[in-house]
Amino acid sequence: MSSEAFEVTIPSDTARGQAVQERIISLLEKLNFPPRDVFGVRLALEEALVNAIKHGNGMDPEKNVHVRCRVNDVSAVVEIEDEGPGFRPETIPDPTAEENLEKPSGRGIMLMRAFMSDVSYNDRGNCVRLVKRRDGDEAE
């Protein structure tokens, strides 16, 4: 089985986040993940990295984001950890509720959950784990 893994630490800079995103996407493409999976992973990575950089680290140049990635033939697992205080995902209001529909927040997490196979947070809430199983595969 083909397998690729890497770890990288980047400053709180969305351009650097984009570069990490491209690196992970190129691994998925190399392992021939279907385009729909690649679309979902890219979107989830964008949301998670922006959350870590903006909301987690508050764009603080002194704080870093740590990314751990493992991709093989059946799944992609990415952990994104910021150096912020963490948050409780269950406290984010439902962006699809009528009264929240016009508010510009809460959609990032919702999209991550919709497009990934599994999204989980550590207890502190400063590290998100994204799992994408290759379309049609049951096992991780």
């Binding site: 679309f39 890219r42 979107l43 964008e46 949301e47 016009e102 510009p104 990032g108 999209l111």
Partner: peptide, 16 residues
């Protein structure tokens, strides 16, 4: 081909 939730936020503001 790709659009994030931050872009959706701008579209919502535009609509308003």
């Amino acid at each position: 081909e790709y659009l994030s939730s931050a872009a959706l936020g701008k579209l919502i503001t535009m609509d308003k």
